Computed example of a mutant assay.
Amino acid sequence: MKEKLVEYLTELVKIPSVIGNEKEIADFVHSFSKRFYPEENIIRYNNSLIVYDRIEPDRKTIALIGHLDTVPGENEYTGQLIDGKLYGLGASDMKAGLAVMMGLMEAFHKKDKRFNLIYVFYEKEEGPYIDNGLEPLLSQFDIIQKADLAFALEPTNNTVQVGCLGTLHASIIFEGKRAHSARPWQGENAIHKAADFLKRLADFGIHEYEFHGMKYLEVMNATMVEFSGGRNIIPDRFVINVNYRFAPGKSIDEAKEDVLKLVNGEAKVEFTDLCPSGSVCLYNPVLTKLIHQFDLPVEAKQAWTDVARLSLYGIDAVNFGPGDPAQAHQKNEYVPIENLFRNYDIFHSFIEK
């Protein structure tokens, strides 16, 4: 199977699938799935797929979940295996996880196993929360909700990462009065009005937050700005995009209140993207069995993933994949090939009856 895993991943990274351009890779996975499952066990929705076993009620069900898209990026070594690293855009985030899913599909489509399996391949994970391709699969089909545990094969270096940070974006809008920069007293500088807020934001630092025994780090940062006017104009509008990453156990409303407190009424606030945090399901019996059987390290997920979306639907989910998180969204992204083999071996041994 090692050679096939390399083959699958090589083919996947050679298919461009920057967010919004997932049709070709969805067609590829769809064609692959039809080799092992009948059409009645395959759901195709736009450029997303659910492939599933007949659910046997006497055994637990596992969902394996991976997104098909990548961020834009460059890779000079696409499809090459160099010094034990396979290169390509999305190699770590998260086409290595997709290759593992394909390998498991081939290995277990007719083989007796301990769990029912559901495979989910979906589009548009790398964009806004509202456009995410997993949402319609969850809202329009109930098969994924049958899972006793879902694994998002996001890059974790084969560490089990539980929960995930929530994230929100807010536009902090400072308004002033336009004037010529040679006569600033005739106007009101919207950029200067943001000075006190920016100082408080810079001083926000890192807030440690413990939840169910796991330590999460809350951070809030300015990530983009926009303004009106030109270089010789006192601007009458200055907008700061603030990104807040908040820990499990904190609601979206509580996170919004944290931002409003920091703004302190000095500017208008428009919340533009609101993504909940993911639940911490450390006591899920399927998960505890996996962790103990393979003596896997466990840590908090210091980022947002669709574990949060699955949590909203009452599905216990964790992040566990072969990719290297430090390689995600990097130029010349790669995955250590041994990570790929290790992840497959763990899943295969765990699922095998």
Rank of each mutant, 00 (worst) to 15 (best):
G230D: 15
G230I: 04
G230L: 09
G230Q: 10
G230V: 13
R231T: 15
N232E: 14
N232V: 06
I233H: 04
I233M: 12
I233Q: 07
I234D: 02
I234H: 13
I234C: 02
P235D: 04
P235Q: 03
D236I: 02
D236E: 13
R237H: 08
R237D: 09
R237C: 05
F238D: 08
V239G: 02
V239T: 09
V239W: 00
V239P: 01
V239D: 02
V239L: 05
I240Q: 00
I240D: 00
I240L: 05
I240R: 01
N241Y: 12
N241D: 09
V242M: 00
N243P: 03
N243E: 08
Y244N: 00
Y244V: 01
R245W: 12
F246K: 00
F246D: 11
A247V: 01
P248M: 12
P248Y: 10
G249E: 06
G249V: 14
K250H: 08
K250V: 14
S251L: 07
I252M: 15
D253I: 11
E254F: 05
A255D: 10
E257S: 10
E257D: 14
D258M: 04
V259F: 06
L260F: 07
K261Q: 09
L262T: 04
L262W: 10
V263C: 05
N264A: 13
G265A: 04
E266Y: 07
A267F: 00
K268C: 02
V269D: 15
V269W: 03
V269I: 04
V269R: 11
V269Q: 14
E270R: 09
F271R: 10
T272R: 01
T272S: 12
D273C: 08
D273K: 04
D273E: 13
L274D: 07
L274K: 06
L274V: 10
L274N: 06
L274G: 06
C275I: 14
C275R: 15
S277L: 03
G278H: 02
G278F: 04
G278N: 00
G278I: 05
G278R: 06
S279E: 14
S279N: 14
V280A: 03
V280Y: 14
V280C: 07
C281L: 01
C281Q: 01
L282I: 11
L282W: 04
L282T: 07
Y283G: 00
N284I: 08
N284Y: 05
N284R: 02
N284D: 10
N284G: 11
N284F: 09
P285I: 11
P285H: 07
V286I: 15
L287T: 00
T288N: 06
K289N: 11
K289Q: 10
L290A: 08
H292G: 13
Q293T: 11
Q293R: 15
Q293Y: 04
F294H: 11
D295F: 13
D295E: 11
D295M: 09
D295P: 04
D295Y: 12
L296N: 08
P297K: 15
P297T: 12
V298P: 03
E299L: 12
E299N: 08
E299A: 15
E299S: 15
A300Q: 10
A300S: 13
A300R: 06
K301I: 05
Q302A: 05
W304P: 09
T305G: 01
D306N: 13
V307L: 03
A308Y: 05
A308R: 03
A308I: 12
R309D: 01
R309V: 15
L310I: 00
L310N: 07
